[in-house]
Simulated assay, not measured.
Amino acid sequence: MMTTRRTLLAGGIGLGAVYAAGSFGFSWPATAASLPGAGTVSHTDGEWRAMLSPQQYEVLRRADTEMPFSSPLDHLFAAGRYDCAACDNQLFAASTKFDSGTGWPSFFEPLPHGVAQVSDGSLGMQRTEIRCARCDSHLGHVFDDGPRPTGLRYCMNGVALRFIPAGSTPQAKGTEKQT
């Protein structure tokens, strides 16, 4: 490939924009590898298959999507918290859940260090995938059509989540398969 003044100029502008973004306090979305506790839970494919139900495995480990309106968590609005079904990482406070009408549990804000964002170009469109920051499991996607105060809609697969009612002690992960 031949380098021209135009490609040098474009590259210089791009590098300048990256530098300026960092200088003005802009922070790039977190990736699973950059968050505290990232990668602390890992298993072989066979171990994941043994730990998760077939549907959970397809969603959490292979980035599948459950059918809309199929999760009982979609219309659950009790006090508590939503954890990762694969590793029990704390993901969302129930107080941030809202009815988006999309057929999937939706939240306007994750808990600190709960999720990571990954660019997703599948299905011929550009989206932002949401993964568990601890085990890198696929949870869903985030969109910019949510309510205040964030304007975001974290659209999650119900089988990727485990609801923990307020005041209860979570059962140890791996003691039974969830369906």
Results as ranks from 00 to 15, higher is better:
residue 1 M to T: 12
residue 4 T to M: 02
residue 4 T to I: 05
residue 5 R to S: 12
residue 6 R to D: 02
residue 8 L to N: 09
residue 8 L to D: 12
residue 10 A to I: 09
residue 15 L to A: 13
residue 16 G to T: 15
residue 20 A to C: 07
residue 24 F to V: 15
residue 25 G to T: 10
residue 26 F to Q: 07
residue 26 F to E: 00
residue 29 P to W: 04
residue 33 A to M: 15
residue 34 S to H: 03
residue 39 G to C: 10
residue 39 G to W: 00
residue 39 G to D: 09
residue 40 T to N: 13
residue 41 V to C: 00
residue 55 Q to L: 13
residue 57 Y to C: 07
residue 57 Y to K: 01
residue 58 E to F: 11
residue 59 V to Q: 00
residue 64 D to P: 08
residue 68 P to C: 03
residue 68 P to M: 07
residue 71 S to K: 12
residue 71 S to G: 07
residue 73 L to S: 12
residue 75 H to W: 09
residue 75 H to R: 15
residue 76 L to Q: 05
residue 79 A to C: 14
residue 81 R to L: 11
residue 82 Y to D: 01
residue 88 D to S: 10
residue 89 N to I: 06
residue 90 Q to E: 14
residue 91 L to K: 05
residue 93 A to W: 08
residue 95 S to Y: 13
residue 97 K to L: 00
residue 98 F to P: 00
residue 99 D to P: 00
residue 99 D to C: 07
residue 99 D to S: 09
residue 100 S to D: 01
residue 101 G to H: 01
residue 101 G to T: 03
residue 102 T to M: 15
residue 103 G to C: 07
residue 103 G to L: 11
residue 104 W to E: 02
residue 104 W to T: 00
residue 105 P to E: 02
residue 107 F to K: 06
residue 107 F to R: 14
residue 108 F to R: 03
residue 108 F to H: 14
residue 109 E to S: 15
residue 109 E to R: 06
residue 110 P to N: 02
residue 110 P to R: 11
residue 110 P to E: 07
residue 112 P to F: 10
residue 112 P to G: 10
residue 112 P to S: 06
residue 118 V to H: 14
residue 121 G to T: 08
residue 123 L to D: 10
residue 123 L to R: 04
residue 123 L to C: 11
residue 124 G to Y: 02
residue 124 G to P: 05
residue 126 Q to G: 05
residue 126 Q to N: 14
residue 126 Q to W: 06
residue 128 T to G: 02
residue 129 E to S: 13
residue 131 R to S: 10
residue 133 A to Y: 11
residue 134 R to T: 14
residue 136 D to N: 12
residue 136 D to A: 14
residue 138 H to Y: 11
residue 138 H to G: 04
residue 144 D to A: 15
residue 149 P to V: 02
residue 150 T to I: 01
residue 152 L to D: 08
residue 155 C to R: 10
residue 155 C to K: 09
residue 160 A to V: 13
residue 160 A to Q: 08
residue 161 L to V: 15
residue 164 I to L: 09
residue 164 I to P: 11
residue 166 A to Y: 03
residue 167 G to C: 05
residue 170 P to R: 07
residue 171 Q to L: 15
residue 172 A to Y: 09
residue 173 K to R: 10
residue 174 G to I: 07
